[in-house]
Nucleic acid binder design. Structure first.
Lengths: 166, 166
DNA sequence: ATTTACTTTCAAGAAATTTTGAAACTATTG
DNA sequence: CAATAGTTTCAAAATTTCTTGAAAGTAAAT
């Protein structure tokens, strides 16, 4: 397979993967493009390669920077901004875990806490509280497991996990 | 907090959580509703509680059954179908992992395999292949880790993970 | 074999999300 | 300070995804 063909296939696949994980296609594609780029790209480079508008490129780059997956890079003597991706896959995944944990798991834990105080002694209320507590227990375990995971160093996952888990 | 209020809050939150994970709001809500229900519900019960159409209820129930998160239950002497949710949170998560691994991770691994054969000796092609290989290595590790996880028994996660990981 | 009870399907409509593009903004240069 | 180079914003348009509802399908009961 040649490069343009491979590149295109990668951009498509990564974009589709993003879609099924609640990340918009373009954001995933910009990330993919930057991951395989040998040097920093400008907004224009990205617009051109992905055939997207300036506004779209800008918004999604901003979001990627928020997530810690892309960094702005200023080149000496150049007026425009360049962008590079985080290329260490463990850091990529770690940042995603940190963000999603904060935006989704933690608020959900808070809601579950409130919900476990539901009153009532009919079977419906009892089952509700029982199930909420089961979900809460599970989610707390997931939460602390993720904390531990995130604190572990870059090589931990690839190097050690398989041995420990055996 | 009283039951109707708590129930509503749970249905809303679970629905929103689904949305950010590529699961449609209604599917997540039906699942939530069945998880907290003390007995099996009929399609009509679900339509009524969630204020959704028959077609919508049917399609999403079908999908939940596909995912192994909901089961059909036939009551003696009743003509209509009832539905119950898988309530063991570990099994819920395990089924989701199995499905998403099959539908997303495995196809991606196949694509990455093809892509690592890209030819070319300019820096762009070299970086492309290098990065594809890094992603592939990471994904394979994730794949086997998930396999191990899924083979582990129901109580493993809640009981043992924290100790092992320490 | 007809009626009745229920489920499935799917085209069209509604809703939600994403993208565009042009105007407004910011900062550097001459 | 005017011109130039670049970035940001956001309302409107385009696209994608989800939902509806009615018709078709299935099967038990009479």
């Amino acid at each position: 397979m040649n490069l343009p063909e491979g590149k295109d296939k990668f951009l498509q696949s990564w974009g589709a993967l993003g879609s099924s994980w609640g990340v918009n296609r373009t954001m995933a594609q910009i990330h993919a493009l930057l991951m395989i780029a040998p040097q920093a790209l400008s907004a224009e480079d990205i617009m051109e390669e992905l055939k997207i508008s300036r506004g779209n490129a800008n918004m999604n780059l901003r979001a990627l920077i928020d997530w810690g997956l892309v960094f702005k890079e200023l080149k000496a003597g150049e007026r425009k901004e360049f962008f590079v991706a985080e290329k260490d896959m463990w850091k990529v995944v770690k940042n995603i875990i940190i963000q999603r944990k904060k935006k989704e798991l933690e608020p959900m834990l808070k809601v579950l806490d409130e919900l476990s105080s539901v009153e009532g002694n009919d079977p419906e209320a009892e089952e509700f509280v029982r199930m909420i507590k089961e979900i809460k227990l599970f989610s707390s375990k997931a939460d602390s497991t993720l904390d531990t995971l995130v604190k572990a160093d870059s090589n931990w996952f690839v190097g050690t996990f398989m041995k420990m888990i055996k």
